[in-house]
């Protein structure tokens, strides 16, 4: 559980911001291993619809999550311009399918505001807080729950 992404952000942290469905999100840069262009995935049977499938990342099998679908947006129709952000979550590598990487931010932990109450239930599960930067609102995403939980995977089967 003590992944870089899940440690409390220290005084000055760097975040990678990206776009999904016209909104901006970000994750701690320490949990990002790689950013690569979209490649065709191999779908996995019996997987939730936000699991796009798996790709070959230098010899290991990397699951790719459609972050838009995971956050409750319309599922992404990936094109060559889409980007996969390879992240490390709880000792597993997970690829996040996003529209584009928009920015690298250096922020102070104090500037993170709590997630507003209005957000949907899904959003509240995945968002650790929001940032206001140059008039933009950027949501900070917790990567802990992006992969389907084991029980959940089993649940779609039985």
């Amino acid at each position: 559980m003590m992944q870089a992404s899940e440690k409390d952000l220290s005084a000055n942290s760097e975040l990678i911001a990206f776009r999904i469905g016209g909104q901006e999100f970000c994750v701690d840069i320490m949990s990002v291993r790689d950013i690569r262009g979209w490649t065709q995935t191999t779908p996995l049977p019996h997987s939730p619809d936000y699991v796009k499938g798996v790709i070959n990342l230098r010899g290991s099998v990397l699951p790719v999550i459609d972050l838009a679908a995971r956050l409750g947006f319309k599922p992404t129709e990936p094109t060559a311009r889409h980007v996969i952000i390879v992240t490390q979550v709880n000792n597993q590598s997970v690829g996040l399918l996003v529209e584009a990487v928009s920015d690298i931010l250096t922020i102070n932990a104090a500037t993170i505001q709590p997630t507003p109450d209005v957000a949907s239930e899904l959003a509240r599960v995945f968002m650790k807080g929001v940032l206001a930067i140059e008039g933009r609102m950027i949501s900070l995403i917790s990567l802990d729950c992006v992969l389907p939980q084991t029980q959940e995977t089993a649940g779609t089967v039985h």
């Binding site: 996995l44 049977p45 019996h46 290991s60 099998v61 990397l62 699951p63 597993q92 992969l147 089993a154």
Partner: peptide
């Protein structure tokens, strides 16, 4: 390793 068991 990176995902979990998949039925079938």
């Amino acid at each position: 390793t990176n995902y979990g068991h998949v039925f079938g």
